[in-house]
């Protein structure tokens, strides 16, 4: 344990020493350089990010942790191109998206980024299939292509039989899987999940993590997971801890937990039993 902490500290130091000097590297999917984000509401300035530098390589599964108010959500919005840095640069696949216009950012979100949110952000009274088709609609895909790829994505999260169901007919876990299918449908470069298990029971959470790990392993998908649950974060290959708008810790996970294995160990019965098993 002590050894791991040392390692983390070293890594953080390395990053700190390299501030502002890191050059854009093509192998990094995400590269943040000295990113600041200041919110102004009236005369009050809120410094949500105070110079964050972070590089995430292709195929990494990074968990961002931190208490509420730490700036982890701002960081996630930044990585997800929903927000732009007040100062600093953000290179996404080598493109400096911090200079992009609103429309350009929308296109980047459409083509490069897949989102999964804590709250079931599915369109209400809209079938799973149509929810999954949504990004393709804005990508300008043909109706046939939309249908084919949406079906494919739903199948990959094991919901082929729920194509016509509307969110209110689905369980929380199923809704989150629809959201994952929607995030996957446009074959994004990075996949961002904001507290994806926040509203789920243990088994559904594990199922979601299992899908993430499978996508990461099989498709080399870059995953950024924002969570405050340590046991969920431990499924990632690297954990970044944020506090007060700065990165406090950045360490690889020596042996990430396998959601598959935990699920296999769980008795398939009730949720109570599943929680006891954890």
């Amino acid at each position: 344990m002590a050894e791991a902490t040392q390692q983390e500290r070293r890594r953080t130091e390395q990053h700190d020493s390299g501030l502002g000097l890191v050059s854009p590297d093509q192998s990094d999917v995400i590269r943040l350089e000295q990113v600041h984000r200041i919110y102004r509401s009236g005369d009050v300035e809120v410094h949500a990010l105070r110079g964050v530098s972070l590089a995430i390589g292709r195929g990494e599964f990074v968990a961002i942790m931190g208490p509420s108010g730490s700036g982890k959500t701002t960081l996630m919005n930044m990585i997800g191109c929903l927000d732009r840095p007040t100062r600093g640069h953000y290179f996404l696949e080598g493109m400096d998206v911090s200079q992009f216009s609103g429309n350009e950012l929308a296109d980047v979100r459409n083509r490069k980024i897949g989102f999964v949110f804590q709250a079931m952000n599915l369109l209400p009274r809209t079938s799973s299939l149509e929810n999954v088709e949504l990004p393709l609609l804005y990508a300008g895909a043909s109706p046939r292509e939309q249908l084919r790829r949406a079906r494919e994505a739903l199948a990959s999260v094991g919901l082929s039989d729920k194509e016509r169901s509307v969110p209110s007919q689905l369980s929380g876990g199923q809704q989150q899987r629809v959201a994952i299918a929607r995030a996957l449908v446009n074959r994004p470069s990075i996949f961002i999940a904001d507290e994806p298990t926040g509203n789920l029971d243990s088994r559904s959470s594990l199922e979601v993590m299992e899908i993430f790990q499978r996508l990461n392993r099989e498709q080399k998908l870059t995953l950024v997971l924002v969570t405050h649950e340590a046991d969920i974060a431990s499924h990632a290959t690297r954990i970044v801890t944020v506090r007060d708008g700065r990165i406090r810790q950045d360490a690889p996970v020596a042996s990430p937990r396998s959601a598959r294995e935990t699920l296999d160990q769980m008795p398939p019965a009730s949720d109570e039993a599943a929680e006891e098993a954890l």
């Binding site: 929903l82 609103g102 429309n103 929308a106 979100r109 952000n121 599915l122 369109l123 804005y138």
Partner: peptide, 13 residues
């Protein structure tokens, strides 16, 4: 919220 979702998945304003 719907508008937010649409924007997040890449709808231009």
């Amino acid at each position: 919220r719907e508008i937010g979702i649409r924007m997040a998945v890449g709808a231009r304003s």
